[in-house]
Design a protein around this nucleic acid. Structure first.
Lengths: 135, 135
DNA sequence: TTTACTGCAAAGGGTTTGCAACATG
DNA sequence: CATGTTGCAAACCCTTTGCAGTAAA
């Protein structure tokens, strides 16, 4: 949390954003964040989310639609996970990753790095389909 | 290719779009598609890409930035693959998937479906990092 | 010829930015 | 007190849409 101290002030607005993200167990859209964070204006939300992302406190994720979604960084939330995405309503849900999957992805990353020269830093596994409400 | 026939006409414009996507071995942004497809206007590109996606000839993918990117559907290109994404310049590259990884992802999908009630239809594995040009 | 497609330009919607007032350290 | 931060509204950029002319079947 105090990662922010390394860069900037930890204001009421920023705290509200972090709290909103921490309370949700899934990535939130800007509208959802605004609703959850109380009196935060749109411009402040965007501005501070950008800052929080740069400070590695939050992370922007992309789903099925083109709405920006944000979640706490894994260093902050403390657990590595992947996402379930509903192709109908766009909602995202967190799912924990199994060791077997992680190992397979890491191996694939190593291999791809070797073949292409990419410096692979992280990965993302999304499972897409229909959520209970939309199926 | 003739999937389009099932819905609409196979015009010069649409052929140009499909050819452009087929020629690239990675997802292309709209600007890249316009450059590659010759005399296609922006509105036609968006309109037809939407139609091609609905006909399952093409597919829209999202990467690190918020630019829409398109690639041929796997039924058309003929091979299942994942993506390498450069977090600096946003470029995406295709990488083929190993059997081991596919199996692990499918197992994870099955498990997640059971736990959450999601009807998982497809998956996406992105390896993110820095491309050779940006590292 | 009929119907769908194309181009142009204007409209739309989410995101970013300028600027003056304000709050934090 | 000095700076960084907030709010408001205008600016932006990518994407979508209306409409009249054009091309495909």
């Amino acid at each position: 949390m105090r990662l922010t101290a390394a860069d900037q002030r930890y204001t009421t607005c920023r705290r509200a954003l972090v709290d909103a993200l921490a309370a949700a167990k899934r990535p939130l859209t800007i509208p959802e964040i605004l609703a959850a964070a109380g009196t935060v204006t749109i411009s402040s939300a965007y501005r501070n989310l950008t800052i929080l992302c740069e400070a590695d406190v939050a992370r922007r994720v992309s789903g099925a639609d083109d709405l920006g979604r944000f979640e706490l960084a894994e260093d902050v939330s403390g657990h590595h996970h992947h996402h379930l995405i509903c192709s109908s309503c766009g909602t995202m849900a967190d799912v924990s990753a199994s060791d077997k999957l992680e190992k397979a992805v890491e191996e694939a990353a190593r291999q791809a790095a070797e073949e292409t020269g990419f410096d692979v830093r992280t990965h993302r596994v999304d499972l897409e389909g229909l959520c209970p409400a939309c199926r």
